[in-house]
Amino acid sequence: MTATSDWRAEPESFVFSDENKAKIEMIVAKYPDGRQASAVLPLLDLAQRQAGGWLPRVAIEHVAEVLGMAPIRVQEVVSFYTMLHDKPVGRHVVWVCTNISCMLRGSDEVLEACEAVTGVKLGQTTEDGMFTLREQECLGACCNAPMVQIDDDYYEDLTAETTTAVLDAFKRGEIPKPGSQSGRHTSEPENGLTTLKDTQGGDS
């Protein structure tokens, strides 16, 4: 891990890569003529991934230009959705769910573990640009509470220890296996199935 200072810098220009340009053509073609603006969300997602996890001003303006929108309209969309960032974020964005189910199942300890490993508080980014820590309302995985979302994946059934292990793996440059960290399969009961034991998946 190298301490870099330029992860916060605003790039001077942004143009979609050739690979993304091909994708954009396919995305925009899904919408009727004159309704290209509907493609703003997928394009912003592409732009965010290409620009390094966040949307600098030049990227917003480029998306606006590609779709024939006013830049402010695109900025409105960016500011509306939490998954789009208009300020620099770390390489990994850690969303800690602190809503009721996770809270009852111990999200406080998970959050404490996150803060301990990263050394930053909620809403902050580590100096080296590795992690950004964010609080998130219910992510809809209550049956596996408590959980966090890191980048595109859910890490569920966490404890302080497993949370630390997951984040340490990210620190080492690995991507740990997403899903339940307690060993259970998806959201099946912890002590094994209690019903539907005699059916194979999909059979009735």
Partner: peptide, 9 residues
């Protein structure tokens, strides 16, 4: 002049 907007929600 579409220059005004509402940011955030």
């Amino acid at each position: 002049v579409p220059e005004m907007g509402a940011l955030g929600r």
